[in-house]
Amino acid sequence: MTYKFDFGVLLPYWPQLLHACLLTLWLAATAVICGFIIGIVTVVARRSGLKFLRAIALTYIEVIRNTPFLVQVFFIFFGLPTIGISFTPWTAAFLALSLNCGAFSAEIIRGGVDAIPRGQFEAGAALGLTPLQVFRYIILTPALRIIYPALSGQFVLALLTTSIVSSISAEELTSTVQLLDSDLFRSFEIYIVATLLYFALSTIFSLIFKGIDRAFFSYPIK
């Protein structure tokens, strides 16, 4: 092997890399929060009495879950402008990620809600709670406790998915290292560093979720 590794060329660029990491974290965090809200709304829609609402929610979930994220991003960023709806790369990336995360979260949350025994809903109604209160206190909170591991796994996956938005030149970690690569021609080193940075970011992300788990979902309930 004649190739000489040289990670030193990357050193002067560390502020850029750090900035890119923060952008990636920011994009992932906002998209995850937004996706989670979309997920809850979708689950409510799926359980609603209106047939067309249920149909819309189901179509949304199945279409997003069964097509690749790359095609979704391209559709939003390149496709929609032809019918007059255009976004900046960052907005398109945020929108695509939120929609993607929303569909997967919805499916996970639905699983948790289904696991709540029916008697609980009826008991809630018998206590005189409004349907919204029943949903919030009796369904959502215990359901979240059940699905929390799956949900946080999904959110870490969303963080890793952000790398794909580099293909529409939204500024984050992958697009930053691609730019560096075109300056430095040190592809292998650069992508090793980028991969390790992603690994660190996903570790941070899962640690945050562990913290949230301790604070909100541990017994006894505060």
Binding site: M1, Y3, V156, L160, T161, T162, S163, I164, S166, T174, S187, F188, Y191, I192, A194, T195, Y198, F199, S202, T203
Partner: peptide, 22 residues
Amino acid sequence: FFQGTPLLMQLFLVYFGLPVFG
């Protein structure tokens, strides 16, 4: 490692890494 890094990075590593190893 594979669950904690993006698939895109894994593909890049193989694509740019294999030529490095000949």
